[in-house]
Simulated scan of single mutants.
Amino acid sequence: MTDSKPAAGGPLPHMAFPKLGGGQIEIGGPRERHTLLVVYRGKHCGRCKKYLAGLEALKGDWEDAGFDVIAVSADPEPKAQSDVAEFGWSFDVGYDLGEAQMRTLGLYVSEPLSPQETDRRFAEPAVFCVRPDGIIQVVCLSNGPAARPDLAELLDGMKFNIAHNRPARGTA
């Protein structure tokens, strides 16, 4: 269960997590571009691979629309690196998302069903579209792997929101 839920129209909490290839990914606060942040369950999740393959296919379209594309999970570096090597993701991938960070983002957190699934608690899927001023335009939180927004539809909606300077909705 989430402790709190980030509000559409409110700021994305500031935090950092390690980035594959070195350095850190920082979210929250002002940036030059919009941000698409995708939280995925981890190496153990086949549905995540399919979803992130779709993200990879649309990455150029998201970037052309003015977005930095980021994915992050609770997986440790070796698992995240293994997935990037196997699936060829070219977007920034963060790892070691901590449980306190999951709670700050309002994510649903799950226990592994078995040691074969994974060895740690992990975040269920989420997608955040964040404006350059750090304000959340769209937030989609899921409590399971089968409920995620269609990335092509979301991109189309975000292009419209940007072109027409639409405010975040669902703020009441």
Rank of each mutant, 00 (worst) to 15 (best):
75 D>A: 13
127 V>A: 05
137 Q>R: 13
59 K>D: 07
142 S>K: 02
117 E>V: 13
148 R>P: 13
111 E>T: 11
94 G>I: 03
108 Y>P: 15
83 D>G: 02
137 Q>M: 14
12 L>D: 05
96 D>E: 10
34 H>D: 11
22 G>H: 06
57 A>T: 07
98 G>I: 06
113 L>W: 15
127 V>F: 12
145 P>W: 08
93 V>T: 14
135 I>C: 03
135 I>L: 03
105 L>G: 13
72 V>H: 04
43 K>R: 13
165 N>Y: 07
110 S>E: 08
39 V>S: 12
47 R>S: 07
154 L>S: 01
130 V>H: 05
71 A>V: 04
164 H>C: 05
17 F>P: 06
3 D>H: 07
56 E>K: 11
133 D>L: 02
132 P>L: 08
9 G>K: 01
134 G>Q: 04
64 D>K: 03
58 L>V: 12
141 L>R: 04
143 N>S: 10
134 G>L: 00
2 T>S: 10
91 F>H: 12
82 S>H: 10
41 R>W: 00
162 I>A: 06
172 A>H: 12
164 H>T: 02
34 H>Q: 00
142 S>G: 06
14 H>V: 15
65 A>R: 00
11 P>E: 06
46 G>W: 04
88 G>L: 09
131 R>P: 00
84 V>M: 00
2 T>C: 01
4 S>L: 01
30 P>L: 00
69 V>K: 06
134 G>I: 01
98 G>E: 15
